[in-house]
Computed example of a mutant assay.
Amino acid sequence: MTAVHNGARTLPEAVDLDAAEGFLRMFHVAHPEAGAVSARLADVRAEVATTGTYRHTAQELSYGARIAMRDSGWCTSGLPWRRLKVRDLRGFRNAAAVAGECVEHLRLATNGGEIRPLITVFAPDSPSGPGPCIWNEQLIRYAGYSDGLGDPRYAAFTDAVRGMGWRAPAERGRFDVLPLVVETAHEGPRLFTLPSEVVHEVPIEHPDLPWFARLGLRWHAVPVIGNMRLSIGGITYPAAPFNSWFVGSEIGTRSLADEHGYGAAKPVAQALGLDTSSERTLWRDRAVVELNRAVLHSFDRAEVTITDHHAESLHRLSWLRGRQRHTGNRPTFRLDPGAARRARTGGPARFSGTDAETTQPQSPGRLAELLKHHQDRSSGLHSDESA
């Protein structure tokens, strides 16, 4: 919808009517109770002719988000995509409101450990103005510091948000939660501290190795993807955070064991008494197996939903056999190069014409006030409203 080239915002474009028609025909085939597609197409063409865009019905939005989730491959085994909860918050475009509802998403998704798959959809790009965007790759990520402490994958992002006003804890640790960065065209990037009560973490211990807990490893319970844009029928929703639940190897292999992450494979191997002098001893493989065992054991013990990579492999093969061929008209999640770069380096801003503010991050108390304000007005899933 809003074209962005080399970090600079250009004039908005009107909706592609072919994409809109393709999606609406697909929707009406799946939902014949919605009425004649010809009538809906006539309404959409008239709306686009007047405004340059159109508004999905709540049912169209839910269907499109669920199809995008299903076809993206992000649905983990055991996840009934048809029952994904879609939070329709298309009226929300101010940074504080978006951040507050991201906190609410985390609360709802965590669900006491019984992870609840959710998608929260914020304001779309349109000729009247672009929607908000979230910089963070996932809503919860850990800081990385120049001295090697923490998660080195996010060292550049950490430096960027410190330059924007974020203050690391007085006693820096290996698992300091980074602030949420929400950017809007009219406010620029703003920082928000996530309240500790919605950052549910699982300490990692091993079922057979008592010394494992002394490594001090832990991980957050819910993987909420924050920086992918949702495209449905020619409409782009740049902020549409969504989650399922973790595959154990995403934590054990990719985050904890990997040398580009926490590099825990070698300390584990040394504690096991393995020969780490050569990769040919396969010490790394043996250490990674124990890390993955520890992750699955710890999440199960904490009663937090998780799946393993073997179950996921079977699920993914089934998905590959049955997936639809992608066309330009099918709903999908996309990761733009600029969004990927912002998630790792903390820039450049999506709207380069707006200088990044140097400001203190909003406190957890402020977010709590926002949540209480929203909860006072509604209960359960939110209906669309202005914010």
Rank of each mutant, 00 (worst) to 15 (best):
L215H: 02
L118G: 08
G365L: 11
L191K: 03
P203C: 06
H309L: 11
V199F: 01
L180K: 02
S378E: 15
T281D: 00
V199Q: 05
E197Y: 13
S146D: 15
R323H: 12
T327P: 09
P207G: 03
M228H: 14
S386E: 14
V121Y: 01
R323M: 08
Y145D: 07
N136R: 03
R9K: 10
G188A: 00
G226L: 06
P12F: 04
Y262T: 05
T236L: 10
L180V: 05
A265V: 02
E312P: 03
L282E: 12
A349N: 14
G165Q: 00
I140C: 07
S126F: 07
Q360W: 10
V103G: 09
K372P: 06
D308C: 04
E33G: 08
G131M: 02
D336Q: 13
E290L: 09
V181Q: 04
W219A: 03
R153L: 10
P364Q: 00
A96K: 12
G347T: 00
V103W: 09
Y154F: 15
T327Y: 03
I140K: 10
F122L: 04
D151Q: 02
T358V: 11
H206D: 00
P130L: 06
H200E: 14
W219Y: 08
N292H: 05
L61G: 00
E279R: 12
W245F: 14
V44Y: 02
H326A: 15
S126T: 11
S146M: 14
H382T: 13
V202Y: 07
K85M: 10
T327E: 08
R66K: 13
E205F: 14
L256H: 05
P210W: 06
L24C: 15
T10M: 11
W166N: 06
G226T: 02
P12N: 07
A265H: 09
R325W: 11
R93S: 12
L41Y: 05
A46P: 07
W319E: 09
H315S: 10
S244Q: 09
G261T: 04
G7T: 00
A213M: 07
G150T: 06
P207S: 03
E13I: 12
A8T: 10
I306T: 02
